[in-house]
Every structure is written in C-alpha cells, then in structure tokens.
Design a protein around this nucleic acid. Sequence first.
DNA 1: CGCGTTTCTCAGAGAAATCACAGCTTGGGG
DNA 2: CCCCAAGCTGTGATTTCTCTGAGAAACGCG
Lengths: 246, 246
Amino acid sequence: MTTTSPQGRTELLRPDGSPVRVLVVDDEQSITELLSMALRYEGWQIRSAGDGHGAVQTARDFRPDAVVLDMMLPDMDGLSVLGRLRRDLPDVPVLFLTAKDAVEDRIAGLTAGGDDYVTKPFSLEEVVARLRGLIRRSGAADRRSDSVLVVGDLTLDEDSHEVTRGGDGIHLTATEFELLRFLMRNPRRVLSKAQILDRVWSYDFGGQANVVELYISYLRRKIDAGREPMIHTRRGAGYLIKPAVS
Amino acid sequence: MTTTSPQGRTELLRPDGSPVRVLVVDDEQSITELLSMALRYEGWQIRSAGDGHGAVQTARDFRPDAVVLDMMLPDMDGLSVLGRLRRDLPDVPVLFLTAKDAVEDRIAGLTAGGDDYVTKPFSLEEVVARLRGLIRRSGAADRRSDSVLVVGDLTLDEDSHEVTRGGDGIHLTATEFELLRFLMRNPRRVLSKAQILDRVWSYDFGGQANVVELYISYLRRKIDAGREPMIHTRRGAGYLIKPAVS
DNA sequence: CGCGTTTCTCAGAGAAATCACAGCTTGGGG
DNA sequence: CCCCAAGCTGTGATTTCTCTGAGAAACGCG
C-alpha cells in the first residue's frame, strides 16, 4: 500500500497500514544515526544495533520488514549474522553494507536470494532507493506501488534506470541519475544545495558545494536541452523540478 | 492542527490542541532572548539553554517538538549534542544555527534527516518559517496544515516559493519573498518599518531604514502593478496588506 | 596496461540582487 | 494654501550567486 503524505511524497506502508519496520546494524554509531535519521524521515520505524548479537536479538522481537546489515561487525562475521537472522525471519530482505574493496564475489552469492548491497561510503539516496526496492519486491508492502517516477513528460524508472522525456530515452551517469531521482521524488519543492549534497553525495564527501551546480548544469543539458525547462533555480534558496507547462 | 487566532493569524498547534514546544540552544544570551521572544510571539512554548548539557537535560523533561541548536557551543560540539538529543527524542526535528563561513565545513548529513539549518546572522522570518516547516513535516502538528498562504487572490507557497496573483505567477527575489511572507502572515494588520526591519532583515543589519520603503516599492510593482492595490501605506504608522476588494 | 567515461576542482564570466543615495512626490497640519 | 516630514523611486555601485568551460584525477572495463 502506498499513501501520499501532505508533502506530496509517496510513502510505503505495510498491507495493514502500519509503517514499514527496518533494522539497521552497524558498529559505527555515526552510521546508524545517519541512517536512522534518514530512514525515519521516510516514515519508517527504525531500530538499530551495534553488533551481531544485538542484531539477532532485536530482530527477534522487532520483526523488521527489512534489515540494513554492515558486513564488518566486531563480534561475528556478516554471514553468521545473516544465518541467524534467517533462522528467525526466513524471508526478510537484507541490504548489505560493505567496504568498497571487499571481495565482491562473496557478496554476489548473497544477493542472489533477492538481497542487495551498497558499498561504503554510500549516499542516502542510494540506500533509501535500494531499501524501497527490496521492500517492494519482498511483498511486505503493497506490490502495486511501482518504480516509475513521473513529473510532467519526464519519467524515471528506479528499477531499470531508464529516463525519458517526451518519449525520448536519455542517458544519465550514476550521479546524474541520483540527483534527478531526488528532485523527482520532491517535485515542486525547493531543495537547497545542502539538502541535495547530504542526500545524493556520499556522507564522507568533503568537496566543494558547487558540484551540485555542476550536476544541475549537466542535467539541464540532457533534460531541458531545447525544451521548455523543468529544472528551475531559486536564487539563494535552491533548485526545484516541476512539469514544464505548469 | 491549526487554529486562527483573534488577530487573524494562523498558528500551529499539536494534535491535542496544546501549544507547540520549542527548545532554543545558544551560548549567546542575546540570541536566545531574541529567538525566545520571536517564537513566543508565534504562540509557541519556549525553553532555552546556554550549553550542551543544559540542552540535553532540558530536552529530557520539556520534550520539545523542535529544537533550535547552535553548532558552536562552549561545552560540547554540535554533533554530540545532536546525538544525545536523538537518544531521548529520536524524531525531534532540529534547526541548526551555523556561522556563515563555517557552512562548507561539514553541515554534512545534517539536513539529511529532514533537519534544516540557517546561517548567522539570520532573520527572524527565516528562522520562524523554517521551524514551521520542520514542525509541519515532522507531523508534530496537524498534517492538514499546508504551506500556502492566501490573502485575497494572492497566494504564496512556502515549499515551492511560488507566488501568484489572480492565477499569474510572479517572480520574487529572496528578500521580496520574505517581506511578502511577513505581510501575508499578518494580513490587515499595520506593520511598522521597525517591525519589518527587525523581522525580515538579519539582526545585524546596519543599513538605512529606507530599504523597507524600497522593497515595498519593488513588491508593489510586482504584486499590485496594474491591479487593485493590496499593499497600503498608513502614513506615520507602517504598511499593511489586505484583499483588494476589501 | 590503456582508453574512454565519469567525477570533481578551479576559476572566470555573467547575471541578479541588494542597498545607498538623492531628488521628487504626496499628504496633512497649521 | 503652504510647507515639511514622510514616503516613493530612479540610478548606479557593489556584492553575491550561479553557470559553465577546461582540465586533472579516479574509475571501469577489456
């Protein structure tokens, strides 16, 4: 089931109308806090744990609809945690967090069962999007909710990563895609550069805030080129996207 | 929930009808006083603290619906305070105050959970507006309250920053927008130039008082141009806005 | 390892917004 | 009806913000 919040955002709900529950497991507190904050803002109910034992225990009575699991925990390795989680909750989808340089083939096997993973450092948009996908596909939330965002004649498919405007396919790079997704998930709302940076770029990004300007510029070339513009600047406030005709 | 006060102002209330509670944390007493005064005037219940420990303690039993938090406190850094606040009040939205030049220096992740920030020196209108936005979106206040101010055929959307009169879109600069918002939040009420200056311009503004006249003039060109005027001068007293037909 | 692609920094051009100043207009008290 | 204070607005200097080209560095893939 999906409902539309007053902000115009669509949120996932479980079939019985209660909020989706997500368990976040990471030993770095800054990470669990960051994730908890962002995921709560999605309207989900969050619990967090700092190690494998805590995770298994919490999962037992919290019965989450999805788990975010760091593969590198102090007390047990990710696979053991996964095994024990699955004993209690056989169908819960898991989003793994792994270091960039971690052995990819081990993860590959794990994700075969419908799970997914993101590498650290991640961007919140990425984590949220993948979690939404996992939950949607797991059937914990209404399956009718689909993965295509539409604003005016612009469409973005979160599953296939396909973007079209007026029917024409548009190729975007990964960053461009995430930026556009964030804009399209908040249509007609002014988003500040800080918000965009916090959401679309990795949490450890230490660079210049004008990357946002730069990527907006790239997006405009691809999305708005020669058409009625959909991406607008609110000087001193931020950017927003809205249907062209308005 | 929203109600309309006798003066014609719309104020946020909590679902149970009690006033919204806000905790203000800053080490400069002049700032906490300035803010407390302005926020009380919104009909909110205010407590203030001068350091991190005080903030955490006060938050514990005051249980605010929102927190205004200076990032630069004498006893602990902003992030620690945030962490402890969140332990007790996981969902409370936070409005950060930061120095202008510190902006680049890691606001990272702060706006990610739906929080927001303003840079010092700020204008009271800005703080109030952002707090209202945070509270509205956090669900502490009734979600029916929306973000559009309406006076006669003039509308102002605080989310999209869109302004229309009689259906026609009107482009305003940042300062014009804030001035109009202040007027529209106080329709049919005379606002003195001093009030406007205190409210719409930053607290350290040292310029000529006639900027207000200047910006009223700009607004009239855009809002009233060729139409029945809505912005009126009360010579010697100030300005007011009201529906054209009266 | 090499090549095409993507990400990001830097810096300059340009546009827009803000504000001071000054001269002009208006309203109303005497 | 005159005059002055209060208010209005044109001009232009200055500051601030945004856009974008060029190129360096990092990445991904064969």
